[in-house]
Design a protein around this nucleic acid. Structure first.
Length: 970
RNA sequence: GCAGGGGUAGCCAAGCCUGGUUAAAGGCGCAGGCUUCAGGAGCCUGUCCCGUAGGGGUUCGUGGGUUCAAAUCCCACCCCCUGCACCA
């Protein structure tokens, strides 16, 4: 571990000193521009974050070795409210947060106090993350670093929003948000107790008339209005009579207050108890039916209006409440209600759904054994009924013009129609209430007026986005449909908030552009960020004209230079650099960002930049799990990256997050994997050291000595692995690449070493060639180890900058590969026999197939290329040859034994065997004799099957087949 | 529901796109052996069932189908995971 750490530090220092990852425009080299979603510095990064960044880095390193001038920059996303919320919690001495900071994130206690200042917190984690990125060895050009609260960047975002507005993509309107009435602020997930995201739903309020008063029943299923049998109120709750936007409503007291947040004019007249309402009748506005108001405890006055319509046929709550009421007639008399009134209320069936009876609510309630309206299982029951009815249900004949309509459609239609005729309205409510603000107050829904939106619903804009998408490479390709879907489905997106860090909307500075909107085209900014720093350009010099010139080529450099005081040469250099690196060649992120960030990136690029500068590729990956479990603070299974690096080392961590899954899948991290990776690297290191030493003092190889089959085999296999790894890398299949480079190649090398160990002449030049290639191919994934090995082997220069190996076709030797396969097969067969007979071999005899068998075999292969062969046709063919006439019986026997096998060999392999022709098996076995002897721990004798002086007491020799020598063990 | 991913031997996990070289890589665990004063580590061998000769039998969520041949292709079904926004 110590030793790994030293290597890491050594190479990180050297890279930095040599500035090899600083990319500058170079017209003679092709460029490759890669970016990863910048991190949000409200906590340190953990192993999970490392996957996307490491993937991008490995890709960058690979492309660099392929000869591209690769740019991989990094910045920090300060925008938004989470960091404010966290700082505030810290300031308020939130013990839970402090515990997380100290225990999980290892923030020194004495630091905590200064982190109560939001910017300080962001800077602290910014540095923490940056340090982690350096220590894991990312090949980032740090000169271009910035944060999204830098005033220069603010200017850039202002320019972007001016552009969007010019194009007509910015809109204004109202929209609901979670709201803390006490703080007077919108609440997001990080503002609530227990970090719950406020889920806002739109209830339909259906106006049931009671004389001149209206009881607005709140429902999420307006289509069930046809199945209403009664109205529920909570007899113990407080209701009010109130004038709401000029209408007389009876609603819960809580509701009256909430409505004021939803921009309704509410005048409360008098209060009354729920009990007073019970027994009265109201009119169903959809059917005209006269129905009763009945009492139910499950009705929550804090939820929406506190008035609920009862649909016992399709709502489990209603069904159970009604049954409860029927079973307790005494309760009814309390309210001076006729017992019969309730007895005669029966569920009305209005929806038919496959797999359920007339009354789905009853089915589910009975199945779940629910007795009481307070039973929490009712939530599940409701969900089940809703799910089935919504997706598979059809409206029945008793629903008027909606009859036959799928429920999903009827739901919208009924709502629309009721609203159009003034019989319904809507109200927002938190679906997962109660949601408590961290201050303790219960959150409500507030309608924000004059909110600013980006209009992703614009059809022409969508068309451009689609066009861009279809031209892009998407990895993994399977997810392209997801992008298509998201482009179609996006609509207006609120793009500014009243609080948080970031850039103010230039034309309405009360608003701050939110984080998903100020992070869509910043890849362009990286191309000039270092110029701005280097030339000390001030924010106010960065006018829209400047950006227009740099990014769009609009205007005249000289005039802009005069106007802004920015040196004309610098302006031109920025324009050139932008044009050199743009368009973006590869964008990287986790695929959870497809529904927002990544698609927004496409939209904003197509809105602002000309087509030739649209992004070319997006790569997304799954998340990292921790020993199979999702990583989360509450599980306590988060390993901060710095901690992981300290425990396992940079290269093992890099390999761990890349080698366990391909892009689409989640990668599973575990200490065992990291440890295994580390051991693998250490082993490789020892081997390299040992090999290098051997070269130093062993007798120099004679260059003229011919390569043996096993040597050729090793070299041939090496070419295969290079090819396979390269093909995998081209498709971002890093798992496969690592598998090949680190494991498969290694296995072959081990086999090679084992094979040559006993013949006394290890060819270190071949081992070295393998190791050098392996070290190079390891560079994208385990760059520190790779550099160190490269240096030990005396290769000079940086492995990181060396060319990626190319397969040498002249070293591909299929004959050697087949010959070696023969040895493996023979060894395995021998062991198998020994096992089956339970004998420990003293002496093993091999008999290779006679030449005539080879002739027959090859002929059979040839014949079978045209189609399936049979014994008889082959026999007839062969008997034309006089040589075989004499041994027809033997021939038939032999063909019989090979025919099935030959027919099963894949065409490709047949082709190969035919090309190779006869292999001198005896010689191949002879070469491996020492090896076999030591492996089997037995004497070895090799004969050709009809060699006269052979020893063959059990007449095994005649069983010999090409590539399957006969074996006799004693 | 829509979209995506997945279900492979005791466990983790490859293979599936491009059907046959696959009883199915690799790792962990387990068993035996070597090494060691011992422990540990390392190395070797084995690890679906049967088998005194390299063989046979039964396997890759379930059920069908295509094919000379299916873990791999097609159809149906079951189960698990993720996303479905205004939040970074």
């Amino acid at each position: 571990m110590e030793f790994l750490r030293k290597i890491e530090e050594k190479w990180q220092k050297r890279w930095e000193e040599a500035r090899i990852f600083e990319a500058n425009p170079d017209p003679v080299r092709p460029k490759f521009y890669i970016t990863v979603a910048y991190p949000y510095p409200n906590s340190p990064q953990h192993i999970g974050h490392a996957r996307t960044y490491t993937l991008a880095d490995a890709y960058a390193r690979y492309m660099r070795m392929k000869g591209y001038n690769v740019l991989l920059p990094m910045a920090f996303h300060y925008t938004g409210t989470p960091v404010l919320a966290m700082a505030k919690r810290l300031a308020e001495n939130d013990q839970e947060l402090i515990k997380d900071f100290v225990n999980i994130y290892k923030v020194p206690k004495e630091k905590l106090k200064e982190l109560t200042e939001p910017l300080r917190m962001a800077r602290y984690f910014h540095e923490e993350i940056k340090e982690g990125m350096k220590r894991i060895g990312y090949s980032i050009d740090w000169r271009r670093e910035f944060t999204t609260v830098d005033p220069h960047y603010n200017r850039f975002i202002e320019w972007q929003f001016h552009k969007l507005r010019e194009k007509g993509y910015i809109k204004r309107g109202s929209h609901p948000v979670g709201w803390c009435p006490k703080d007077g602020n919108p609440v997001g997930q990080h503002d609530t107790q227990g970090d719950v995201e406020p889920e806002i739903g739109e209830f339909t309020l259906i106006k049931f008339k009671h004389g001149e008063w209206i009881l607005p029943t709140a429902t999420l299923r307006p289509e069930t209005v046809f199945g209403v049998t009664n109205i529920w109120v909570n007899p113990k709750a407080e209701y009010v009579k109130a004038v709401v936007d000029g209408e007389n409503w009876i609603i819960s007291r809580d509701c009256a207050e909430k409505l004021t947040y939803q921009n309704r004019r509410v005048v409360v007249l008098e209060s009354l108890s729920g009990k007073e309402l019970v027994g009265k009748t109201v009119e169903n506005p959809a059917t005209g039916d006269e129905i009763y108001i009945l009492p139910a405890d499950f009705v929550d006055p804090k939820n929406a209006t506190g008035v609920v319509m009862s649909v016992p046929g399709h709502a489990p709550y209603d069904y159970v409440a009604l049954e409860n009421l029927k079973s307790e007639p005494s309760k009814l008399t309390d309210y001076k209600l006729q017992v019969d009134v309730v007895k005669n209320i029966n569920a009305i069936s209005i929806i038919e759904v496959p797999g359920y009876s007339e009354v789905p609510a009853a089915d589910v309630v009975k199945r779940m054994g629910i007795q009481e309206q307070t039973d929490p299982k009712l939530e599940d029951a409701t969900r089940e009924v809703y799910r089935h009815e919504f997706h598979n249900g059809k409206m029945k004949a008793n629903t008027g013009k909606y009859a036959g309509m799928p429920v999903a459609e009827a739901k919208e239609r009924v709502k629309r129609d009721l609203m159009a005729s003034g019989k319904a309205t809507t109200m927002y409510e938190l679906l997962n209430r109660p949601v408590k603000c961290r201050c303790g107050a219960e959150c409500v829904v507030k309608i924000f007026e004059d909110q600013w939106f980006i209009d992703y619903g614009n059809p022409e804009w969508k068309a451009l986005a689609h066009k861009c998408l279809e031209k892009m490479r998407i990895y993994p390709e399977e997810l392209r449909v997801q992008y298509r879907y998201v482009i179609d489905w996006l609509h207006e997106k609120a793009c500014a908030r009243k609080s948080g860090l970031g850039t103010r909307l230039p034309w309405d500075p009360d608003w701050i552009i939110e984080s998903l909107s100020d992070s869509t085209i910043y890849m362009a900014y990286y191309t000039i960020a270092h110029h701005i720093k280097e030339h000390n350009i001030q924010p106010d010099q960065l006018t829209d004209e400047v950006f227009d010139y740099i990014f769009l080529g609009i205007g005249n450099a000289q005039q802009i230079a005069e106007k802004t005081g920015i040196n004309q040469k610098v302006l031109e250099a920025m324009r050139r650099e932008f044009l050199y690196f743009y368009p973006l060649d590869s964008r990287h992120s986790a695929h959870e960002l497809i529904p927002n960030h990544l698609t927004f990136m496409i939209f904003n690029h197509v809105a602002i930049f000309p087509e030739e500068l649209w992004p070319r590729q997006i790569v997304t990956n799954g998340v990292v799990t921790m020993e199979g479990a999702k990583m989360s603070k509450s599980f306590g299974n988060i390993i901060p990256l710095r901690e992981g690096l300290a425990a396992y080392g940079a290269d093992p961590i890099r390999l761990s997050v890349l080698a366990t899954a391909e892009l689409l899948q989640d990668a599973d991290f575990s200490p065992a994997v990291a440890k295994a990776m580390r051991e693998k690297l250490e082993k490789l290191y020892r081997l390299v050291v040992q090999t290098t030493e051997t070269v130093g003092n062993a007798e120099t190889e004679r260059a003229d000595e011919a390569l043996t089959t096993i040597d050729k085999w090793m070299l041939s296999r090496l070419q295969n692995h290079i090819k396979k790894a390269t093909e995998a890398m081209e498709k971002l299949e890093v798992r496969k690449a690592i598998q090949t480079i680190l494991f498969e190649l290694d296995q072959d090398l081990q086999w090679y070493q084992k094979r040559v160990k006993n013949c006394g002449k290890t060819r270190t030049s071949i081992v070295k060639e393998v190791l050098k290639t392996q070290a190079l191919m390891l560079a994208p994934f385990a760059p520190h180890t790779s550099e160190e090995l490269w240096e030990i082997m005396g290769c000079g220069g940086f492995a990181s900058l060396a060319p990626w190996p190319k397969p040498d076709e002249t070293k591909v030797d299929i004959k050697a590969e087949e010959s070696e396969a023969l040895i493996m097969e023979v060894l395995e067969d021998t062991r198998n026999i020994s096992r089956a007979t339970k004998t420990k071999p003293q002496k093993v005899f091999y008999y290779t197939a006679a030449p005539w068998k080879w002739d027959v075999y090859l002929m059979a292969l040839n014949k079978s290329m045209e189609g399936k062969i049979t014994q008889s046709t082959l026999m007839m063919e062969l008997l034309k040859n006089s040589e075989f006439k004499s041994k027809a019986k033997e021939l038939a026997d032999f063909i019989n034994r090979i025919i099935e096998e030959v027919n099963q060999i894949p065409a490709e392999k047949k082709q190969r065997l035919i090309m190779i022709g006869q292999i001198n098996e005896k010689q191949v076995l002879r070469e491996a004799e020492d090896f076999l002897r030591s492996e089997l721990n037995a004497e070895i004798a090799i004969f050709e099957e009809d060699e006269p002086q052979r020893y063959d007491p059990k007449s095994k020799a005649r069983l010999a087949r090409p590539l399957r020598p006969a074996i006799y063990i004693e």
